[in-house]
Amino acid sequence: MPETLSFFQKFFFSFLLTILLSGCGETTEKTLSDSAQKVEANKITVTDDLGRKLEIPAQPKRVMALSAAMTEMLFAVVPDSLIVARTQVCNFPEAALKKPVVNSYPLDLEGLLVLKPEIIFTEDGITSMETAAKIEQLGIPVYFQKYEKVTDIFRGLNDIGKIMRRETEAQKLTDSLQTELNAIENEVKTQELKRALVVINTDPIYVYGRNTLMTDKLEKAGGQNALQENFPQQSPQLTREYVLQLNPGFIFGISQVQNEAFFRLYPELKKVDAYKNKRIFNLNDDLAARPSPRVVESVREIRNYLQK
């Protein structure tokens, strides 16, 4: 075998290589919900919910999420084998607990480098733009989703399905969730609206504001957010006097909110109808706070309390 290639051989291989490379540059068009995307070689360009354009693998094989809700969404749509890690706060489904942990706060960049996900999913408000930029410097695209309504979660699931080439599975799941949701809505639509306040934090008092997923869940469960005023923040801080003036018929607590402790801390609030009528309940933390595929379960839980 000759040790060096002849001029003719070099020319032939160069020509062949040029042909092959130019073939890889051809593009095809795909649609991903409302976002435009292009397929370029084995990469596609997608637009996430924040309007950021990202170049991602056409068929990602290694993915993870930086929020507990999005980990639940991935496990609902994507085969477990493609999910490479979870964060320290991801505790559902059980299969997630078997995955290695990458700390999301403070972010474990080295952990990401070791596990090399090809795309990371996260939620608006959970991961900062600064953190996303750091991750993207490692060559890992960060796909943000944003949810203000229950239907945004279904759209999010379908988007994950399209990105991961699991459209059919995602569509089946969202269809079934939508059917369940419709059944709950039909059941409560003739009932009187019940005014509820959902307390996120007790000291100081923070509640879910009007333009939040929780408001949509309350409405679908036959209730209404007692807080109808618009505030600049999604979850505004309230005073005792404001809560007294709202006089909610129901008070739901999530996270570390403990009903008895709440009223021991603010005995003045025992004057509200919710306390007088013993309509104060703790919602399941994870169901209430996470925009996950378990959203219908969350609506059902709220519906059950509102009927008490």
């Binding site: 706060v89 996120i200 934090n201 007790t202 000291d203 100081p204 923070y206 005073t239 005792r240 996270s255 570390q256 909110v257 801390l265 603010y266």
Partner: peptide, 20 residues
Amino acid sequence: SSSEGKLKSVIFWAMGGFEK
């Protein structure tokens, strides 16, 4: 701390207020 609620309580307490 792993609790966002507790963080809020501490931060707000440190900034002062008369709500309670």
